[in-house]
Structures are given as structure tokens and as C-alpha cells.
Computed example of a mutant assay.
Amino acid sequence: MIKVMIVDDEPLVRHGLRTILEGDPDIQVVAEAADGHAATEQAHAHACDIALVDIRMPNVDGITATRALRAMARPPAVVILTTFQLDEYVTEALRAGATGFLLKDTPPVEIIRAVHDVAEGHSTLSPAVTRHVIDTLLQRHQTLTAQERARLDTLTARERQVLQLVGQGMSNADIARALSTSEATVKMHVSRVLAKLQFDNRVQAALLIRNVDPAPPGSDRGSST
């Protein structure tokens, strides 16, 4: 059973998310909170695996709440859920320790899938967020360090191929279709790539490979899961 806490200042949003999540027999909503301060209190009172956290809330916002939650002795994974996709919120959320970032217009089935992915140790980012943050951060060109180049060299040819497709913003399903393999196999490759590169999420990996191998003109950078 995946134990989830919902953190949002809008009661209607909390109710809607609870309804969506509890429609899955493997997910249990164990707590709700209306701001970041209440979220940390609830997290201590009710052990949870994942916290879905809004960014803009009164008193204590979602970024501050994420830092506090991730600093706990047994921290829950944090997935930011918001209507906003401005790059400063995305990058701040990732720096604060968020595992994922979903827009509130994400279809219910994708929200459920994201919870399962995070519970399995994967990161999850909304397609629009992935495309936006990669393109924005690439404008601040980063020079690869010797360590990053050395880690890239540890990848197998197949892992490098998967990484290049991740760099184009493709989802695991898209990559599976492109490589004529299963989505489970792609997930395995992505996990290995992140481990070898010592990254927490696929946006970091995408930025790295895009600094080495820029996406070809007209390539589809549509989504990431």
C-alpha cells in the first residue's frame, strides 16, 4: 500500500485528489494539510511514502514545505502539484528535493501512474514542465565537468541511446516505441543511467546530454514520465 499525504490550501482540490487516488486499490491517503506547516506536522503524525504538495499556499509555501519534509529522518518523496509551470518554481522545487513536478491539469490516470512511479523510486515530471525547464535551463549553457564526462563514458551504447532520447524530452513509452522494446526495459535503462550519472531525476540527465549532443532541429521534446 502506497501511503500518500495531500497538501493544498483548497479543500475542493484535496477532495478531488483524494477521490482520484483512492480509486486505486494500492493507494491510501493517510493525511491532508492546508499549508506547509501543517504538512510537516501531519507527516510526523502519519508516516507517508509520498506527499503531493501545492506550491502557492498561505503561511508556509510548498517549496519551504518540501525542504522541511525532505529533512525528516524518514522523509516522504515529494511531488509538486500546481497550476504554475514557471521555471523558477520548477528549479526551486527540484533543488528543495522534489522527486516530481505535475501540473494540476494532468489527467487522473497520469497522476496515479506518477504516484506508482515515485513509489518505485523513479522521478516524474509533467511533459510541459520537462520541455519548459530543459529549454529554459539550456539557455544558461553549462560546461561539463571532468567528472560528468567520466560518468558519461561509463554508459553502455544502449544506455547512451536511451539518454539521448530522454534528452529530447521523450517519455518512457515513447522511447520504448522508438527502440522497439518494452516500457519496463526502458525504465530499467533510465534507472541505471541516473545511477551511473549520480542524478536524482531525468531533467538533470537530459540537460547533461543536451549539452553534449544537442537535439536535432525539429525533434519532438514532448514528454517525460
Score class of each variant (00 low, 15 high):
G222M: 01
S171N: 03
S224L: 06
G100R: 01
V115S: 04
A157L: 11
G16L: 15
I112K: 04
I55P: 13
L137Q: 08
I2P: 00
A98L: 01
A205V: 02
E159L: 08
S223F: 06
L207Q: 00
I27R: 09
Q139C: 10
D26I: 07
A176R: 06
H116P: 05
Q28A: 15
F84I: 15
D49S: 07
V90H: 07
V78I: 10
P58N: 06
R74H: 15
H189E: 11
V203W: 02
E22I: 00
E183C: 08
P107E: 05
L81D: 05
A77G: 09
Q142C: 13
H116G: 03
T154V: 06
A47E: 11
R192I: 11
E92F: 11
D105E: 12
V109T: 02
S191I: 05
N59H: 02
R210Q: 00
I55D: 10
G169K: 05
D220G: 00
Q147H: 15
A51M: 03
S171Y: 05
G23P: 00
P217Q: 00
A39D: 12
R18Q: 11
A195G: 15
E148W: 12
E183Y: 07
L103D: 04
D61E: 00
F199Y: 07
F84T: 14
I27M: 10
Q42P: 15
A206I: 02
D35C: 12
A128E: 10
D49E: 09
I175D: 02
I63H: 03
E148C: 13
R95E: 14
L21Y: 05
A128K: 06
V13D: 13
V29C: 14
L94F: 14
S224D: 07
M1V: 00
E41G: 15
R160L: 06
N172V: 07
D105P: 10
A31Q: 15
L163A: 12
R192W: 13
F199W: 01
A146S: 15
T225E: 07
N172H: 06
S224F: 03
L12M: 14
V133Y: 03
T91H: 14
L197F: 05
Q168G: 04
T145K: 10
L137N: 09
F199H: 02
P107W: 04
F84W: 15
I80T: 00
R151C: 07
K187V: 02
R210C: 01
D54L: 00
Q164H: 14
M188N: 14
T181H: 13
V118L: 04
P58F: 02
E159G: 11
V186T: 04
N211H: 01
H132E: 12
T130I: 07
T145N: 09
T82H: 05
A38S: 14
T145Q: 10
G23L: 03
L94G: 09
T64D: 04
L12Y: 15
F199L: 08
V129N: 02
A184T: 11
T40P: 15
L152K: 08
Q204F: 06
